[in-house]
Design a protein around this nucleic acid. Structure first.
Lengths: 349, 349
DNA sequence: TTGTACGCGTTATCAG
DNA sequence: CTGATAACGCGTACAA
């Protein structure tokens, strides 16, 4: 408890001292260095435009005064703010956390800061948040947006925009390719003797959900396995639980869920109804989120490179912002099958 | 796949159209409404200072022009930016999920946006991030900071600062009181016959870790139960695993871990060594994070009101920012024991 | 109630 | 290479 300084606790205290002298400006530096403010500006923003001597004097003065650019003043003439916005649909969904972290790390490394907003799974909120942010940030990342293509394109017409896990014509995007992971997964299931597979879908408007379904269907057909889809719900643990009844009613011996959250919910609901996983049913999720290996049995899943997704999105959107990249380019990262305990051989008839 | 517009994919596309006419300013509105720009400014910032008629004309014009304040231009004269910073030590720690969300929700409701940064458990990074943010935001929230008191106080001398789960003299704080939850937990353990309890500590510099330890110790002494502490480590699943050896070496029949992450790691490591939980050892965590009920057995834990913590921190820091609250006030939220499967009766000697 | 004029800290465009 | 000066968009004393 060494960090608790005053025994009494949290008493009142004089308000913010005036002693915090107003932050130094380029004028202060100019005066101290004996040059013109505009020279200071040049020295600080684009080194090389002033003589080495002056440059040094200015740097010293800046150091001494503990100078920090006022990004707002800078933003006025330039329009650039050194911030990038990130909008996610659900902050508490662990799948987004590595994306956020990836983006934050990459931003920080480039001396940008991240502005975060949440759309709470609502297209309206998303659009509002996006518009508000757009006036402030240099670039915007939309993580698995629920917006219509036109809205996104409209946004992208004003500032660099990159979407993750979705493709929108003319807009930069970074997506985790389901192909590799799903191919491995279906092959594995086929090897284990499964003949009928189901897919528990995600939100209606999720590009990624239909993408995953298409891929699964294609691979299953290739292997001559029957496929079906079951009623979609919220992409949450609760949503997964709701799907349990439909899954039990079907003939599938293995089921893919739109994401790990749903897979976990489904598994737990089934288990509490006495069904043994994977003995009686195999379950697979997508993403490999935190906690997906905590369950019993641990969840088999198709891992998305979440962190890399965040890094890539930020990199792309900033490159675009600085004109280094083509607007509307697309990047694809690969997925990977993680076999754990929730998948097994088809049950004996 | 309805959202995929162009079959070909992501081809090139003309660069950002110039048609995106420069954003409307109050001058544009003034012209359209036939008034002076300063009147527009007044109408938009503090309604009531202009006649209802003019007000209406201005609102209409603003609407028509799709006007959005330029917060940077506004920030220059006022110094206020409508943003608040939030620094967490580890974005991927689920314990912060709900804090972040609480803060974001509350911020959004007050028309503020959240700027997020991560310190990656390093006091240096934290200070750097904090300083950088401080020039930009109206107020700053430090979630479980690793900084020294003096650094935090210095920060707080410049802008409103609130810390969570820590007390710093003269600085606003919101903490989850461990008292209630721990009291219940220890009583429960006592009822179950436990006579020796251990605490797996968190990071050395964590105020909350020593706080939890003090509370546990006090309650155990009250019940006449022996207490000990075991080597601390990183507050992660991995850190919990590392503590397994020390825990096995001790005499405790029940152990509290600094947080759920560690508790989960400890439990899994022990289980893989063949120890049955809770038959041979009872385990308790703190926080009740996402996933803590996924384990087998599900983790008993002392729940922190994470979301409320985030809301309270944001509310307090903004109140302070607008002069409504005393700087350095403290708020305490209660904790609650969640009994699940990882705790049970003391093993038969 | 409304208009005038100036300042906020920086960058950019000119001269010199 | 450097200095003066005009924006950038908005808030706000002050005057009308």
């Amino acid at each position: 408890m060494t960090e608790m300084s005053t025994p009494g606790g949290v008493g009142k205290r004089a308000s913010r001292p005036k002693t915090a002298k107003a932050a130094a400006t380029i004028y202060d530096i100019a005066e101290l260095a004996g040059v013109n403010p505009s020279t200071v500006s040049r020295a600080l923003s684009k080194p090389g435009r002033v003589s080495a001597k002056t440059q040094q004097k200015i740097m010293d003065a800046a150091e001494e005064l503990n100078y920090q650019v006022n990004i707002f003043a800078r933003a006025l003439p330039t329009g650039r703010t050194q911030t990038v916005g990130l909008i996610v649909s659900d902050i508490t969904n662990p799948a987004f956390f590595d994306i956020i972290r990836g983006a934050e790390t990459a931003a920080s490394a480039r001396n940008y800061t991240l502005m975060l907003a949440e759309s709470t799974e609502s297209a309206d909120h998303e659009l509002t948040a996006a518009r508000r942010m757009l006036t402030t940030v240099d670039a915007l990342i939309l993580a698995s947006p629920r917006l219509a293509d036109e809205d996104i394109q409209q946004l992208a017409a004003k500032k660099p925009v990159v979407v993750t896990n979705r493709r929108v014509d003319g807009v930069g995007s970074v997506v985790a390719d389901t192909e590799a992971g799903v191919a491995d997964a279906v092959r594995h299931l086929a090897d284990m003797g499964h003949k009928s597979i189901a897919y528990v879908a995600g939100p209606e408007r999720s590009w990624m959900s239909t993408r995953r379904w298409e891929t699964i269907k294609a691979r299953c057909e290739w292997h001559g396995i029957a496929v079906s889809t079951v009623a979609s719900g919220a992409p949450t643990v609760e949503g997964g639980r709701h799907a349990a009844a439909a899954v039990r009613g079907g003939a599938a011996t293995a089921v893919f869920c739109y994401n790990d959250l749903m897979a976990i919910g489904l598994m737990r609901e089934l288990q509490s109804a006495g069904i043994r996983i994977p003995a009686e049913l195999s379950i697979l999720g997508f993403d490999n989120i935190f906690g997906s290996d905590f369950t019993t049995p641990p969840l088999s899943t198709i891992k998305s490179p979440l962190h890399e997704l965040g890094v890539a999105a930020l990199t792309m959107v900033l490159d675009e912002s600085s004109g280094e990249a083509v607007q509307g380019s697309g990047s694809t990262l690969s997925t990977e099958l993680i076999l754990r305990g929730s998948t097994g051989a088809v049950p004996e008839a």
